[in-house]
Design a protein around this nucleic acid. Structure first.
Lengths: 202, 202
DNA sequence: GTCTATAAAGGGATAGAC
DNA sequence: GTCTATCCCTTTATAGAC
């Protein structure tokens, strides 16, 4: 059967993301990987080590992919559209990932803190410079790069994290969720650009 | 000593929020409440029942408080400012609450699904009507209430959920966090209002 | 109501055969 | 590499004294 280590990692990823570290059971991971518990420990010494492998792999997979072009010299508006579009597509394929990562950081910072250097490089100074150039052209007041980044990330990621509540509160049926996400690809850049464009000079 | 049940609930809330249901230990709750494990089971039959009590109480406490004025007939811009301001203040006092609630919904929907009716009433139709009136006056194209609500909630709540990553990526020191939140009280309404104001008619 | 002691089950980890 | 059997610690839950 196809390589065991790969199957274990895939199964572990599935269970850890669905249940979190504390809720995950080695037995369930073994069952899904179609092996027994003992073999888990043969490949990865402990639950901690297995989690570490999964978490590291996940961050390496998702981190750089997204931010690769953020530091590149392309027009601001294009950058925003591209970022939102790509990010939503990626998370659509891994909708539970953001909450999983954020929650593990929360409940056990010590366990994951070592890997947080891996993803998420962002040249804030360069981005702030690009923002300054943009607002200069538009003759509007400056935009703080911190709030710029937080606004975009928030509006892009939060709908996935809060999906059940969003669906309930706003009466979005599961069939309409995909359409809703497509709308957001348009709405988010629009919201950001409009914010920048009429930000009155004081 | 002050009423035991209250101390248990307070201790349980603290531990459940910090560690999640799966990570929480009855022993730790007992220690913090300065009683022994047996007494926990005397007051609340099981860990599940105790969690249920805590979760329900938490939702009841936070849900209606926030949305009480959202359905009221006050000007849109005032409503936005007030909402963001009050919401940020409330979460500042319970910064771990949003992630806790969202994660519990995620890892165990069955356990919490019954209580989700409690909070979060929102008259979306009325709010959509108010938005329509606003864009009519401004002669801009209509705003979808779904994205309106999601945008505001996202930008308000997400910074708390992603605090460690925000701090790291954007180099916000702990001392500056409070200031950062104060800035957001101004930035979020501004972002939303600007979005509405120059949303071009097609 | 509150305690100590202990049962009962769960779950991570290991030994040892093949 | 893979399995079965089992160890042993942790954790929830209960029994029973005071």
């Amino acid at each position: 059967m196809a390589n065991t280590e790969g199957r274990i990692l895939a199964a572990a990823k599935e269970v850890f993301i669905a249940k979190g570290f504390d809720g995950a059971r080695m037995q369930e991971i073994a069952d899904i990987a179609k092996i027994n518990k003992a073999l888990l420990h043969y490949y990865f010494r402990s639950k901690d080590k297995l989690f570490e492998a999964v978490f590291k792999e996940t961050l390496l997979q998702i981190g750089p992919m997204v931010l690769s072009f953020v530091n590149e010299p392309i027009p601001l508006e294009v950058k925003i559209w591209k970022f939102v579009d790509e990010y939503i597509e990626i998370i659509k394929n891994n909708p539970k990932l953001p909450l999983f990562i954020l929650n593990e950081i929360h409940v056990n910072p010590e366990r994951v803190i070592n890997f947080l250097n891996i993803g998420a490089f962002l040249d804030t100074d360069a981005l702030q410079a690009q923002l300054n150039k943009e607002t200069e052209v538009l003759s509007t007041s400056r935009i703080d790069v911190k709030h710029f980044v937080v606004n975009i990330l928030s509006m892009t990621i939060f709908p996935f994290i809060g999906k059940p509540i969003m669906q309930k509160t706003l009466k979005i049926k599961e069939d309409d969720w995909e359409k809703f996400l497509e709308e957001r690809k348009r709405i988010i850049p629009q919201t950001i650009m409009n914010w920048i464009k009429i930000n009155q000079k004081v």
